[in-house]
Design a protein around this nucleic acid. Structure first.
Lengths: 179, 179
DNA sequence: CTCAGTGCAAAAGGTTTGCATCTTG
DNA sequence: CAAGATGCAAACCTTTTGCACTGAG
């Protein structure tokens, strides 16, 4: 076992090499590893797709990598922009079809907002979306209250819940300060 | 003070006249009053509009009457269809503009759903929307849990909430039976 | 009498679809 | 090699906008 200090910067894991490890990599002081290339989601996404009978095409894997690793709640168009950097010939239609598939295999959910396009959320644990009405940013907030909701629906109605969404609209700290 | 029995049938208040009151209306045994003509929302909507500097035009009042008295979470187009029965020349653009105004004066909120158009909800007390993924019906459910959400956001973040929405997706009783 | 509101038509998105071509399993 | 996926363009739909005209306050 080797101990070394490391930190994460813009989706890269940056490892500072100590004397003991430096010898292993000539002329190197740091190891910079792009995390998405090693992220778990690739294989787990492929599995999830195949389990439901979907084919794991390169386009779909690229879309998964981008959409599932982002906590920024990207729009379909934003995902498209990112995917194009890897697959320049990809089409918006494919992105839409893939996002539909990812919803089907329960890897993400859709957030529909007033005025504008759908946004996508790969954080599937029930949570609160804090939607800023000024800058449009969406941040997630975990809370136990949320788990109660499905339980209440089940106990008081004949409705069969399969998913849920909790949005709180308002102003984020930045926007309420600058108002 | 006059006591008489009455009941409501299809938005009409039906008053059965007793001996004591019968004399006041010659040859009448019932008074049938169309409630929407006397519903509170007309005057309260007009007040709410004027308070914010909006003019209370006949079109707006008609849209209020329809949109605010419906618990069916109508779409903009559905509201338009209904309003046209009263104002045949009304345009969809006016409906959209008015719904925007009604949101602004806090008389209703918008529900954005996957695949399709926005739906409108005039029930402004925090509640749960039970959205059936098969038939598209939306029913409301009151629960105290919901009131907790804003409180939690306030106590654990710097976010300034102004509104909220809780949707639970799934199958309504009818659809889960017929599946 | 004035400014906001209306209605029309056209524009502007975002999303979906049809279809020939290409790929995965 | 067959079923399914891609990519392109066109179609779709909901929503918004521009503008001349009308009506509420």
């Amino acid at each position: 076992m080797i101990n070394c200090s490391c930190f994460i910067y813009k989706k890269h894991l940056i490892i500072t090499l100590e004397k003991s490890t430096k010898g292993l990599f000539k002329n190197c002081y740091y190891l910079i590893i792009h995390m998405s290339a090693y992220s778990k989601s690739d294989t787990s996404a492929i599995e999830a797709l195949r389990k439901k009978g979907y084919k794991a095409t390169p386009q779909r894997i690229a879309i998964c990598r981008i959409a599932l690793n982002s906590r920024a709640h990207p729009s379909a168009h934003k995902v498209y922009e990112e995917v194009k950097k890897i697959h320049p010939t990809v089409s918006l239609a494919t992105v839409y079809k893939t996002l539909e598939v990812l919803r089907d295999v329960k890897l993400m959910q859709e957030i529909n907002l007033p005025k504008g396009q759908a946004r996508f959320d790969s954080y599937m644990t029930p949570h609160i979306n804090l939607v800023c009405l000024k800058c449009g940013n969406i941040t997630d907030l975990d809370d136990i209250v949320i788990g109660e909701i499905t339980r209440k629906v089940l106990s008081s109605t004949k409705f069969q819940p399969t998913g849920q969404r909790v949005d709180v609209y308002g102003l984020c700290q930045k926007c309420s300060n600058s108002k």
